[in-house]
Amino acid sequence: MEVTSGFILAVMVLAAVSSLQFFKGRKLNLQLMQHYLRAIEDVVRPEDKEYVWLGGYIGFRAYYKVNRENIRKFEYTLTLLPRQSILYFPIALITSRHDKLYVVVRPFSEIKREAHLIQKGYYRMRPRIENEELLKKEVVEIAGRQYEALYEKRRDVENLKALIESFSNPHNVKHVSLTPKTNVFYIQMKPEPETIGSDIERAVRFVNERLKESPFSP
């Protein structure tokens, strides 16, 4: 196989562009991680914290002990698109689609009933929900988009729906749930740098105020 000067030049250009993208994308992801960490921590105000690096520049996990109001623990995982890789980034846009934030809140109050709101068409393989066959099901519309509702009592769905509608961009919320078995309030969403603080503040207020109120009791 004859290697032409044009081929060598193309390889050199690709290598140069890849190197440039690596440093540019790495810097952006590090800035995003730092921004999200500070914004969320300013809202949650943990008394103790632990971070686990996920490797490379794709994100981290945070474990916060809060022990204040109705929040015992606040945990989240941030995963970012591989902006540092010019070759893998286009693939990730298809497979992962966007940056993701997974929030797990462990309240002091007891969650009595199961409830989920899942944006229709978001999951390629929907997560398994224990005892799903026992839950009522319907489709609800939130801010012009359809969500699959699974629940024991309709009023729990109404409360979760109101929470999603309060977010800066409701469409960014892909899955929100209340799980009594693990006593967890969960949100999966697409984070945005400009609105992450206000959105997390709404989630914290929901736990501290709504999750303690009578609609979630038997």
Score class of each variant (00 low, 15 high):
Phe89His: 08
Thr77Ile: 10
Arg210Glu: 11
Gly121Val: 02
Val3Glu: 08
Leu150Tyr: 13
Gly56Trp: 06
Val105Glu: 02
Ala143Met: 00
Ile164Pro: 03
Gly121Glu: 05
Arg106Thr: 11
Arg26Lys: 13
Leu117Gly: 07
Ser214Tyr: 10
Arg45Val: 07
Tyr123Arg: 05
Lys181Phe: 05
Glu209Asn: 11
Ile164Tyr: 05
Val105Ser: 02
Phe22Arg: 00
Lys137Glu: 13
Asp156Trp: 01
Lys153Asp: 12
Pro82Ile: 02
Gly56Glu: 09
Leu87Ile: 11
Arg26Phe: 07
His175Ala: 13
Val43Tyr: 07
Asp156Tyr: 02
Tyr123Ser: 02
Val43His: 06
Ser96Leu: 12
Ile58Asn: 14
Lys100Trp: 09
Glu69His: 14
Arg145Leu: 12
Thr182Val: 13
Gly197Ala: 14
Ser177Asn: 04
Met125Tyr: 03
Ala62Glu: 09
Ile129Met: 12
Gly6Lys: 00
Leu93Gly: 12
Thr179Tyr: 14
Arg210Asn: 10
Tyr51Gly: 04
Tyr88His: 10
Glu130Pro: 13
Phe108Pro: 03
Leu135Phe: 07
Glu148Gln: 14
Leu32Phe: 14
Glu50Ile: 06
Ser5Leu: 04
Asp156Arg: 02
Arg72Trp: 01
Ala10Trp: 09
Leu93Gln: 09
Phe185Thr: 06
Glu41Ser: 09
Asp99Met: 11
Lys65Cys: 12
Arg68Asn: 11
Arg61Thr: 05
Gln34Glu: 15
Tyr151Val: 11
Lys100Thr: 08
Gln31Met: 14
Ser166Asn: 00
Thr182Glu: 13
Pro107Val: 06
Phe216Asn: 01
Ser177Tyr: 01
Phe108Arg: 11
Lys73Val: 02
Ala162Pro: 01
Met33Asp: 07
Gly144Cys: 07
Leu211Gln: 08
Glu148Phe: 09
Ala39Ser: 13
Arg72Asn: 08
Ser166Ile: 00
Met1Cys: 15
Asn29Lys: 05
Leu178Ile: 11
Arg113Leu: 14
Arg106Ala: 12
Lys120Arg: 15
Ile118Glu: 00
Arg145Gln: 10
Tyr186Gln: 06
Gln31Glu: 15
Ser109Thr: 15
Lys24His: 09
